[in-house]
């Protein structure tokens, strides 16, 4: 069991309100990702769930029990930290055994559990090493091992991959997803990287300035962002925004069109522009096009792109993919 229910939770640091009232229901077994720019309150909320920070007001329920003031040790949650936070003076074995020893579990059972965790995470050969003798990826696995060994009701991840290099990050992403599928335990995962959020999450909560802008599955957020902020945060490369004269029909103040939803033509289209920087990724190409009267547009096209710097081209959006935003940034229904 591992459902977490946040009711009107807030957090103030002195006079600064870091978390405005937040309601969120995290279902048992769900992989939910908190994503947002730095300083948006996502890590603070995670630490409040962990019990490492006080909750200013509101209640946090874990498995239906009010846990708002329960000390972290008694919440039955496990956390994986950004810096891994391994105990540097203990061997890998003792790192993993530490939570079990605190729970006064019998030594034989501890040995058994360590062996099985080590096997799952490919750590068997490293059990007697100190964390200092391990690579970044191995340390990360030890941190995860220490978390899973005590079979918590939920896992909390605080930007666990941000200290790893790019290729390792992709691998660990897969391993954590794999782990979630096999353990079927609730996972709350904080990241500022929307790619991590999109690839791993069952549901994503997009944070901004202490509130949740939108909660939904990755595709929901991609296809139907609730507002301009979510549209801008989800998707890579970033969506293009076009400010327009406020529409008299529905009040549209700006449009959004994703780079992959723009058609290119050499003969004619909605916007005329001149190609600036071209980024070749092999499988696809990103064009940065200077459009008269607008900002630079990012356009995604196929890998075998025939254009070069300075070429004049025309761009047109796929009408049904255009997003309309009102003056407050809220998404309006697409009437096209």
């Amino acid at each position: 069991m591992g459902s977490i229910h946040l009711k009107q939770v807030t957090k103030d640091f002195g006079d600064v309100s870091v978390i405005k009232p937040i309601d969120l229901e995290i279902k048992d077994g769900e992989f939910i990702v908190f994503v947002g720019p730095s300083g948006c309150g996502k890590s603070t909320l995670l630490r409040m769930i962990a019990g490492l920070e006080d909750t200013t007001s509101g209640t946090i329920e874990i498995d239906g029990q009010d846990a708002t003031t329960t000390p972290p040790a008694k919440r039955g949650l496990a956390m994986v930290f950004q810096s891994y936070a391994l105990y540097p003076h203990m061997s890998v074995r003792n790192n993993i055994a530490f939570p079990l020893k605190r729970a006064k579990i019998n030594d034989d059972i501890i040995e058994e559990k360590i062996a099985s965790v080590a096997k799952t995470l490919n750590l068997t050969d490293y059990l007697d090493r100190k964390p200092g003798q391990l690579s970044g990826g191995q340390r990360q696995r030890v941190a995860i091992g220490r978390a899973i060994v005590r079979q918590p009701s939920a896992f909390l991840f605080d930007e666990p991959l941000s200290n790893l290099d790019a290729s390792l990050r992709v691998n660990m992403r897969l391993e954590i997803s794999e782990l979630h599928k096999s353990l079927n335990t609730t996972m709350v995962y904080v990241t500022h990287d929307q790619v991590e959020a999109m690839t791993m999450a069952d549901r994503i909560a997009v944070f901004n300035g202490g509130i949740i802008e939108q909660v939904g599955s990755p595709l929901e957020l991609y296809n139907n962002p609730a507002n301009r902020f979510v549209a801008g945060f989800i998707g890579s490369p970033k969506i293009n925004f076009i400010d327009i004269e406020p529409s008299t029909i529905d009040g549209t103040c700006s449009l959004g069109i994703r780079p992959e939803h723009i058609e290119i033509s050499t003969t004619g289209g909605q916007w005329a522009g001149k190609i600036g920087v071209i980024e070749h990724l092999g499988s696809e190409t990103f064009l940065h096009v200077h459009v008269d009267g607008h900002d630079t547009f990012t356009v995604k096209t196929s890998g075998d792109c025939p254009f070069k710097y300075g070429d004049e081209i025309y761009l047109s959006p796929q009408k049904n993919k255009l997003l309309h935003f009102d003056a407050t940034g809220k998404t309006l229904p697409n009437i096209a």
Partner: peptide, 8 residues
């Protein structure tokens, strides 16, 4: 950085 418990 800390909770009421640890502060006390």
């Amino acid at each position: 950085m800390a909770t009421t418990n640890s502060r006390a």
